[in-house]
Design a protein around this nucleic acid. Structure first.
Length: 748
DNA sequence: CGTTCGACTTAGCAGGCCGTGT
DNA sequence: ACACGGCCTGCTAAGTCGAACG
């Protein structure tokens, strides 16, 4: 390989990093078998580069070489700065007292003295506590005493009130920012947090909602084998319907999918079925498939009444099972329905696609709740696998899934206290990184020159994580999952080095499949020293060898932990995402623009982050069409505008002649009309731009997971933009803490 | 020490809900 | 009132990372 990498065509397309990853799958497929045994590779690598002696000598050689070339370098390139231009770079005393000198006053938190509150026994403090205490903006303290009162009161009368009814007004009067927060909303962020590692003191819930039982097909819907109708046993039939439902999907044509499916299907068959059904190709599911399509049509065609009935029933289920009581508050559960059985479809080229995801029964279920709560009842005649009372975890229900053998959980909604606190804490950690990132960057620049290979590798990897916002890249078990990588698991075949490319020096081309098999493609100029190191790391390796053979995520994170308390690889993503948003907003927002234009700016800032984090999406199927529609609207609006202008002109002329009040008024009216239309036109145009730029970029992920909401809230307040323009209802619920506490001066 | 497990966050997509424009 | 399409929500897979394990 090497020479002709098969990407030329990709590069053409506008230098875009965005390509349909799935289209490229085949390329990766070939490679797949090649790098079959990683562990071995790694070992081999190690011995290749030997320990001490070999390594040292080769390192040294390079070191010397680099030294001379290194001169002009080092000052991080402008490019780099561009990307990370922080405003406050000056701090010379990067060192500072910082991230450990927490003065955390482990104050005695007053524990409400009633029934289910028992005092924490082990008072080991949590990271989170340190974060907080350490952070100036973050002061639950003063509120403390007050909180205690509240806490007590909370516990007795308890606001276990049924859902939120209000809200409505807040939307309607949108503009004048919700003057009165409905006081029923619990502001957990003004209260103390647990310091003893417990996640709750009291937890009560109704358990999960199971998937509805299988309903056998009506007898007129037939399955055919080898052209002949065949009645299947209910078990086999159910699995057959899973396949039938996916029939128009491309993956039912894939070998692996079919093979996995057939194998698992046979396990559900009776002996006779098993004997008879030996070839998937002879199976005809089309009648079943048609039947399901008809069903779904029928569902769409239901009357209002029927739909309403379903809706009501769903609401009932939600009210009954969708909430729990945690520490005296009624909190929304994220996923209270157990995943129904079906055929597993992993993302990308997944070796297990098509396998049967089995039905979860009560005896698979572990319930977690407090001892003194009313325990959820298993369905009649069944038993839970276990009921436990572990308040060191946040989940309510768990079970083990059969495809990967991993554990699945039922947990709370993002709007819950328990998720919110964690989220808040995450951003506080990122803000602490901001305080010492210069120091850390200096350090890894230094480490590029280390005589130890492992340190250089660590330093280069960290540089990628920082500069490119790559994920950490844990190793994965081969054959269990799609072949995807992150930073630490990059292989030689995933990068190409160009001493010079398009007039730039030391360019690295990345091309690999990351999480969810989304392709990461990027060409970046790097510091010379990085480049040289990469050459060194790649020496004598095969394409499927690990690029960083002396590094893994655990080593890296251990190192990071030493640099800053709570620092891990993913904190860099959070930090860089948030700081980028803040900078971009500062840079792109202009005071004199109207609201739609400002929102475009916001979206562009958001987009910059999404691009940084490589958050892609498939272009919406209806993209072209909707673009066209929009264009049509714009054209119409243009016509309307010129009409209005013409009218204005004639009205003016008229007024000039007549000089009476009435015609003057008419002019004013027309003027207003023109203005209004201009505004509308502009709004449409902005919308078009926004949409076009957003074609294959997904903003949601960064908005939800990487951008400190307080930055957005502050921006809204500063420019008098209603938060509703930025966050929809769900998002506002999730970020209620930020909306409540950030003012326009908030600085990330 | 490396490996596995457990808990929790991050991710894109399908499908349907709902608001908009006619 | 209705059709259309955009966006929201639910879903669940796929990551990260620390701790337990052997």
């Amino acid at each position: 390989m090497s020479g002709d990498h098969s990407h030329s065509e990709d590069q053409i397309d506008g230098g875009s990093r965005f390509n349909d990853s799935h289209k490229h799958k085949d390329k990766y497929k070939e490679k797949e078998h090649k790098h079959k045994d990683h562990k071995k590779d790694k070992e081999r690598e190690k011995s290749k580069h030997g320990n001490s002696n070999h390594k040292d000598s080769s390192d040294k050689k390079h070191r010397d070489k680099e030294k001379e070339k290194m001169k002009h370098k080092d000052g991080s390139t402008d490019k780099y700065k561009d990307k990370h231009k922080e405003k406050k770079m000056k701090s010379i005393d990067v060192k500072v007292k910082k991230e450990n000198g927490f003065a955390s006053p482990p104050q005695v938190k007053s524990e409400p003295e009633d029934g289910f509150y028992h005092s924490p026994k082990n008072e080991k403090s949590l990271k989170r506590e340190r974060d907080d205490d350490n952070d100036s903006e973050f002061k639950p303290k003063k509120i403390k005493t007050e909180n205690d009162k509240k806490a007590k009161k909370r516990k007795q009368d308890e606001d276990i009130k049924p859902k939120k009814t209000k809200n409505k007004r807040e939307v309607t009067d949108g503009k004048k920012k919700a003057k009165k927060e409905p006081e029923e909303k619990w502001k957990w962020w003004e209260e103390e947090r647990y310091t003893d590692g417990s996640k709750w003191k009291f937890l009560e819930h109704k358990g999960p909602v199971f998937a509805p039982p299988y309903e056998p097909l009506p007898s007129h819907v037939k399955f055919y084998y080898d052209g002949k109708p065949m009645k299947l046993s209910p078990e086999a039939e159910e699995v057959a319907t899973f396949f039938a439902k996916m029939l128009d999907h491309e993956y039912t044509t894939k070998d692996i999918f079919r093979k996995n499916f057939f194998k698992d299907w046979r396990k559900e068959m009776t002996a006779e079925e098993k004997a008879k059904l030996t070839d998937l190709k002879k199976c005809n599911f089309t009648e079943m498939s048609e039947y399901f399509k008809a069903q779904s049509e029928a569902r769409k065609a239901m009357t209002k009444d029927e739909k309403l009935k379903i809706k009501t029933e769903n609401e009932r289920l939600l009210q009954e099972y969708g909430f729990c009581i945690m520490d005296n508050h009624r909190e929304r559960i994220a996923n209270f329905r157990i995943e129904p059985p079906g055929l597993f479809r992993g993302r990308g080229d997944h070796p297990k696609m098509g396998m049967l995801k089995r039905r979860i029964r009560p005896k698979d279920i572990i319930i977690n709740c407090s001892k003194d709560s009313k325990h959820p009842e298993p369905p009649p005649g069944t038993k839970w696998k276990e009921v436990r009372h572990d308040n060191k975890v946040t989940w309510l229900v768990s079970w083990t899934e059969n495809i990967q053998g991993s554990i699945k959980y039922i947990m709370l909604n993002p709007s819950s206290r328990i998720k919110g606190e964690k989220d808040w804490q995450k951003y506080e950690t990122a803000r602490r990184l901001k305080k010492c990132v210069d120091r850390i960057r200096n350090q890894y620049h230094e480490d590029w020159k280390s005589k130890e290979m492992r340190i250089r590798q660590r330093a280069v990897a960290l540089y990628f994580i920082d500069k490119l916002a790559l994920r950490a890249g844990n190793e994965k078990e081969e054959g269990e999952t799609a072949d995807t990588v992150g930073c630490c698991s990059l292989r030689v075949e995933h990068i190409k080095l160009y001493p010079e490319n398009d007039g730039q020096e030391y360019v690295v081309e990345f091309d690999f499949l990351g999480k969810d098999s989304i392709r990461y493609y990027n060409k970046v100029p790097v510091e010379k020293r990085v480049f040289k190191n990469l050459q060194l790391f790649m020496e004598n390796k095969e394409p499927d060898d690990d690029l960083f053979d002396r590094l893994n995520t655990s080593v890296l994170n251990k190192h990071l932990q030493e640099l800053m308390d709570g620092l891990t690889a993913k904190v860099f993503r959070t930090y860089n995402a948030s700081i980028t948003l803040q900078q971009q907003l500062k840079q792109l927002t202009s005071a004199d623009e109207n609201i739609p234009a400002k929102i475009l700016s916001y979206n562009r800032a958001n987009r910059a982050v999404a691009i940084l984090c490589n958050h892609q999406r498939a272009p919406p199927k209806t993209f072209e069409k909707s673009m066209q529609n929009l264009q049509t609207k714009i054209d119409a609006k243009r016509d309307q505008l010129s009409d209005a202008k013409r009218e204005l002109k004639s009205a003016k002329a008229d007024a000039k002649v007549r000089r009476d009040e009435k015609s003057k008024k008419a002019v004013e009216t027309k003027k207003k009309a023109v203005q209004r239309i201009e505004e509308q036109l502009m709004k449409l145009e902005v919308q078009a731009t926004d949409r076009e730029e957003n074609k294959q970029i997904a903003l949601g992920t960064s908005k939800l997971n990487y951008l400190d909401p307080r930055i957005s809230v502050a921006w809204c307040k500063k420019w008098d933009i209603p938060v509703e323009k930025i966050y929809n209802k769900t998002q506002r619920e999730k970020f209620a803490w930020a909306i409540d506490m950030a003012d326009e001066d908030f600085e990330f």
